[in-house]
Each structure stands twice: as C-alpha cells, then as structure tokens.
C-alpha cells in the first residue's frame, strides 16, 4: 500500500516533529490524515475541527509551511512526493500539538470594534439596504469570513508587531464601517487607525493570497486607510 510520511509537530513550544506512516487514499484531506493518526496510531494527538466542510474555521494548520484549512485541502494538492509536514498555525501561542491558542486572535476582533452597534430599536421599521449600493458590495466582499486565522498566521506584520490587529479583525471592521445600520462608525475608525491598526499593513497581500474563502483583507484594509483619512480631514475623528 502507498504510505504517506507525515511529520507532525508534537508538544508545546518546546516540542519536535514526529513522523507517522499513514495509508494514502484517493480524495484524502489533510484533516483525514490527522484524524487517522489520532484514531489509529496515537490517541494523545491534539487537534481541532468541527464541521469538516469548510464552514467553522476550526481546522486551520500549517501544511508544508503554508497556512491552510485542512478539511478542504487535498493531500494530492500539497504532498511533496509522499511527504507532508503538519504544524500548528504560526503567529499564535501554542496550546499543544496542532492546537494554537486563538484567544488573542479573537480578542483583536473585539479591539477593532468588531461588534455591530445598532442605531435603531426593535420598534423601528426594518432598514432597507440597497443590494446594489457601493457600501453593500464592500460588505459582500468581506462578510463570508469563517474566522479560521489563516490570514493572521500568514501575515508578516503580525509576526513583527504583536499589537497589530491583523487582517481578519480589520476586515470585520471594514464590513461594519460599510453597514449603514451601524451606529459606531467614528469609534470604530478610531479603534482601527494607527500603528496597531490599518496603517501598519504593508500591503504584502499574504492574507489575500492565503484566505481559503478568497476574501481579500488587503482590500478591506486599504478601504479603512482611506476611510480614516477622509474622516480625519472632515474632523470626525
């Protein structure tokens, strides 16, 4: 039988790669490989997944050096010969094995004012948002984020500046800046401006290159830069 040589990160920050032999099948995902190891070779292996169909964002790992959603990454696409290396996501503290600690990642969504702030009450009529407006199109481009952290793990600026809010949180902020029902535009723009926010982005486009949902956070961040500049000129910040 054709066997895969899978080298997997084991332990916490001071761990090491260990190699496992996994039978190779057609149409096998990287998550299938990790699951095989845990069920048939070493039950102490920790990893995370939920939906297995690319909806929950839980299964992201570093596969042969590149951050990917493992449930929808085919072995055939990434294996180099019969070898695969699987590591936890970069730029995040490590809990154990393939489980990265996502707390900081999601805390930054909150810091970027990623919460919708209603400007109307339940007694008001429904808001009518024109589907073809420019703002709605901007929301559309960024709204399908599944919070997988692939962009965050791929961003050099996150590695260089621990405070940087990162592509996903800024993309979230941008969808809200364009939400005409939202009532916290000025505070949000203030929260995402400056050295830890949109202005730190170097337009490396790594996030846009790697996002499995084909979202382009760089586009959202460029939008934020312009929105912040306009608001500053108008004296709204």
């Amino acid at each position: 039988m054709n066997m895969l040589q899978v080298s997997v990160w084991r332990g916490a920050a001071a761990g090491e790669y260990r190699t496992y032999e996994v039978p190779r099948y057609e149409s096998q995902s990287v998550l299938d490989v990790v699951t095989y190891i845990q069920r048939s070779i070493d039950p102490t292996l920790s990893y995370r997944f939920a939906c297995r169909v690319g909806m929950c964002g839980a299964c992201a790992m570093t596969v042969n050096g590149v951050a990917r959603w493992t449930c929808r990454t085919h072995v055939a696409k990434v294996a180099e010969g019969n070898a695969i290396q699987i590591a936890p996501l970069a730029n995040l503290p490590l809990v154990k094995d393939l489980v990265a600690d996502m707390r900081e990642f999601f805390d930054k969504w909150a810091r970027a004012r990623g919460q919708f702030v209603p400007s109307a009450t339940r007694k008001d009529a429904f808001a009518r948002v024109a589907a073809d407006s420019r703002a709605r199109a901007a929301v559309e481009a960024g709204i399908e984020c599944i919070g997988c952290g692939v962009c965050y793990a791929s961003c050099d600026v996150v590695s260089w500046n621990a405070d940087y809010l990162g592509p996903a949180a800024l993309n979230r902020a941008w969808t809200l800046v364009n939400d005409e029902r939202d009532g916290a535009r000025a505070e949000r723009l203030r929260a995402v401006a400056g050295d830890a926010g949109c202005h730190a982005c170097h337009t490396h486009l790594a996030c846009s290159e790697r996002c499995p949902k084909k979202i382009e956070p760089t586009r959202s961040i460029a939008g934020l830069k312009r929105a912040v500049a306009m608001a500053a000129l108008r004296g709204e910040l």
Binding site: T62, A87, A90, L92, S154, D156, S159, T203, A206
Partner: peptide, 17 residues
Amino acid sequence: MKNDLRARNHPSWWAFL
C-alpha cells in the same frame, strides 16, 4: 511557531522584498 520562506513564497512578498 514562526513562518519560514515557504509561507512567504508568493509574488507579492517577493515584490515587497
């Protein structure tokens, strides 16, 4: 964990460099 060149190997990163 830190990224190495494999994560950076895409056109826009080379443009940055």
